[in-house]
Design a protein around this nucleic acid. Structure first.
Lengths: 181, 181
DNA sequence: ACCTATGTATCTACTGATAGATAATGTGAA
DNA sequence: TTCACATTATCTATCAGTAGATACATAGGT
């Protein structure tokens, strides 16, 4: 794994714990054994690092999911798979969603980072809209509403679980998604 | 309004915009026209200020709501009132819920602040549990599940609305709460 | 020679925090 | 009433630590 990827990995852990202001170039450098000035070689500014972090997080998140059609073709329920991806992020990493945290503090972020964070939500709403259209056979508009509600519920469930320091809360909050209809 | 309250008011705006690390004693002091050292007179440490901020926010939030029984007695629907309190926080202040943001970054907070943040969620879940018990006549356990789901949905709806910079998203995400049952 | 990746050294700005002075106000006793 | 002291709220000045960023040098591979 390249130093650049190691830097992003270290940054992800810090941002998902305490937000964009919760990491510094010095901390990241120390953690992977280089100097802070060398971090500037890979990422000219902190905003560049933050934007790349959100970009990769979004891409990995969607790649791991796969397309809704593909999941259906495999006999899987897309919303169930989607829910589990959120649950894993919470229970395995014991951390908030990166873009959930960044989204909450969006008005304090550099423009680049804000744009990449917004992209995460756009792509996730698109994914869920497609999933609901295909599973429930509803209109795009209705599916879009469902998508926004589902995304909101899951981001909120992570947030409340973290705040209460109780992962069982996520399961309780999201239980309704599975028995619906 | 006392200088102490003015400091808390200025801090609230900053924290609700960018989290606990998004304010400094100097900024607050400049904003209300005193010196940073004077802020330490009112709040010995930053953690003390943060804890008091979360404490007052929680108390004001619940006071403004009123007890669920009292709302029912006035012919109001508690869940509707609760939803509107969240919506106002988002549309009037154009900011995230203070404790929503603090809850998301809970693992990076001083112990004092974390404890007060957790208290916000406990109290809100209690309030909603009582509301659901009284409105729907369901068991405490079932009502508690509903409470957690509702709180999660609303915190998430605020978060996604902020991230997408579109307050209409909050309405879309929370629409399901009103037509339920 | 060039490119990639790192290091040394340093800059300015800001952080939370502290010590100690000052002024205004309040309070209790002679 | 007046003097002595205490309390409240602010100030000036300063500290050590950390922030992001830069200029420039260096080492190793092509």
């Amino acid at each position: 794994m390249s130093k650049k990827q190691l830097l992003l990995k270290a940054a992800e852990a810090k941002v998902r714990t305490g937000g964009y202001n919760n990491f510094s170039f010095r901390e990241l450098a120390d953690e992977i054994g280089i100097k802070s000035s060398s971090v500037h070689y890979h990422f000219p500014t902190k905003a560049d690092l933050g934007a790349e972090l959100a970009r990769q997080y979004t891409d990995n998140f969607l790649t791991n999911l796969g397309a809704p059609e593909a999941l259906i073709a495999e006999g899987k329920k897309p919303i169930e798979v989607y829910l589990q991806q959120f649950q894993c992020a919470l229970t395995e990493d014991k951390k908030m969603c990166l873009c959930g945290l960044l989204g909450a503090e969006t008005d304090a972020l550099p423009e680049k980072v804000k744009a990449q964070t917004q992209r995460f939500f756009e792509q996730n709403i698109n994914w869920l809209t497609q999933a609901y259209q295909q599973v429930d056979g509803i209109s795009e508009q209705a599916a879009n509403g469902q998508a926004i509600a589902t995304l909101s519920l899951l981001e909120g469930a992570m947030l409340v679980s973290k705040a209460m320091n109780d992962t069982a809360i996520f399961a309780t909050a999201s239980a309704g998604l599975l028995i619906k209809r």
